[in-house]
């Protein structure tokens, strides 16, 4: 009898702990820089990628800034998905620990208005509206149509020795 009571007590304590962990994980995931959506719109002009990217923020302006960072982050670390008209674009940095191995460089690169801003062109003026601007629990989720200067970004990372060029070693 005592054993059954002990077992039920352990179960009673462990269930909320397990659930609170998943809540924590969900919060971390929501706040994580990698948690964003990106889609390829069509093949960009030479050396560029035309994408739609989402960003989160307490204010709309914060969400716009985050969306621009996300656009560059996606090109470097995640790659861009394919659609019916365009092939997928692989990430520029193929090392899965690319950010960790160059933490200081990328922390500085992605500072607000940091070097990343040179590689994003916003294709629409003004604040996103309609379905591209959603009010969420703690702020806003906005979508931007941006042109990423993909080739210039690649050259910059190669020049800073973060990624290799095709001809390195030859």
């Amino acid at each position: 009898m005592n054993r059954i009571i002990t077992f039920l007590l352990v179960l009673l304590i462990s269930v909320p702990v397990a659930f609170s962990q998943s809540r924590k994980e969900r919060k971390a995931l929501f706040e994580s820089m990698q948690n964003f959506e990106v889609e390829t719109i069509k093949v960009g002009t030479d050396g560029t990628k035309f994408i739609k990217v989402w960003g989160y923020g307490r204010k709309v302006d914060d969400a716009i800034v985050q969306a621009k960072k996300n656009a560059v982050y996606a090109c470097i670390f995640r790659g861009l998905p394919a659609n019916t008209e365009a092939n997928a674009t692989p990430p520029l940095c193929t090392d899965p620990n690319g950010y960790m191995n160059n933490q200081e460089y990328f922390d500085n690169f992605f500072e607000t208005a940091g070097p990343y801003i040179d590689f994003v062109n916003v294709t629409t003026d003004g604040v996103p509206s309609g379905e591209d601007r959603l009010k969420v629990k703690k702020g806003y989720k906005v979508a931007l149509y941006v042109q990423v200067m993909h080739e210039n970004l690649k050259r910059k990372l190669q020049a800073d020795r973060i990624i290799k060029s095709l001809s390195s070693g030859f």
Binding site: V43, G44, T45, E85, N87, T89
Partner: peptide, 30 residues
């Protein structure tokens, strides 16, 4: 892959096709 279905000049579509696959292709070479 395929290019977009368009009435644009063929040269534009050919260029679009190349731009679409070259990043993947270069990645394979790398």
């Amino acid at each position: 892959g395929v290019s977009s279905n368009s009435s644009a000049p063929l040269t534009t579509l050919l260029e679009e096709a190349v731009l679409s696959f070259m990043d993947n292709f270069i990645n394979g070479l790398q």
